[in-house]
Simulated assay, not measured.
Amino acid sequence: MDESFETVRDAFGAAARWFAETVHELDRPPAPWEAPALGEWSRRDLVGHTSRALLTVEQYLRPGSSESVRRSVDYHRAVRGGRADPDEVAERGRQAGRDLGADLPESVDVVVRRVTRLVAGRAADARVETPVGEWRLAAYLPTRVLELVVHTSDLRTVGGLDGPAPEVASRQALVVLGALVADAPSADAPRLLTALTGRSALAAGYTVL
C-alpha cells in the first residue's frame, strides 16, 4: 500500500532528528570520532555519509513539479545499474565528514533543521533531479529515510547505544525494503520465502540493496 506523502515526510523528519540525537549522544568523552565504525569508515566518516541522506535532498531538489512515475524501488534499481564505484562512495562519505567541521553535533543540527524545513515547504510532486534520473519528491524521499535509519542504527551499534528508530521512520524503511524484497532476482525468491517465513536463514552479508 502506498504511503501518504505526509507520512513519508513525517518519517523523514523523525529519522533526521534521530540521526542528530545520535550524534549528540556519541559526542561524549573521549568522543573518538576517528575510531573505526563501518568497513573502512571512521565514526566521523559514517556521520558524513549519513548526512548525505539529507544533503542530497537539498542538492537534487529543483523548482517546479515532476510528472515522473518512477517509484522508490526504481531509484535503487537505477543506482545498482549505474554500478557506483565503492571507492568513490567511500571518499564522498569521508569528505562529507570533513566538511562537517570540528563540532559534528552542531553541524548536523544545522543540516537537519535546514533540510527538514526545505522538505516541509515542498509538495509531493516536487522535482528531484538525481545523477540517475528524475523523481517526484514523494518517491525519492523514502530512499533517504531508509539511508537515515540504517546508518543511524550503524552509528548506535558502534557507539554501544540502545534505543530503536522512531516507529514512523522504521515503518517507512520497511516499506522500501519490502518493495526491494519483491524486486529481488527470481533466483533469490526461494531462499527469501523460506527465510522470511522462519524456515531458513539468509547467508551472512546477503542484502537486497
Rank of each mutant, 00 (worst) to 15 (best):
S42H: 09
S42M: 08
S42C: 08
R44A: 10
R44Q: 07
R44W: 06
D45S: 15
D45W: 10
D45V: 10
D45G: 15
L46V: 04
V47W: 03
V47T: 02
G48V: 08
G48R: 11
G48I: 09
H49F: 11
T50I: 05
T50G: 04
T50L: 10
S51K: 03
S51C: 13
S51E: 06
R52G: 01
A53I: 00
A53W: 00
A53L: 04
L54D: 03
L54N: 04
L55Y: 01
L55A: 03
T56G: 01
T56D: 09
V57F: 04
E58Q: 13
E58V: 01
E58H: 10
Q59Y: 07
Q59G: 07
Q59M: 10
Q59T: 08
Q59H: 12
Y60P: 00
Y60G: 00
L61M: 07
L61W: 01
L61F: 02
L61K: 02
R62N: 02
R62F: 03
P63Y: 07
P63V: 06
G64I: 12
G64K: 13
S66H: 12
S66N: 11
E67I: 12
S68V: 13
S68E: 10
V69N: 13
V69G: 13
V69W: 11
V69P: 00
R70C: 07
R70G: 05
R70L: 15
R71F: 02
R71Y: 02
S72M: 08
V73P: 04
D74F: 09
Y75Q: 07
Y75L: 14
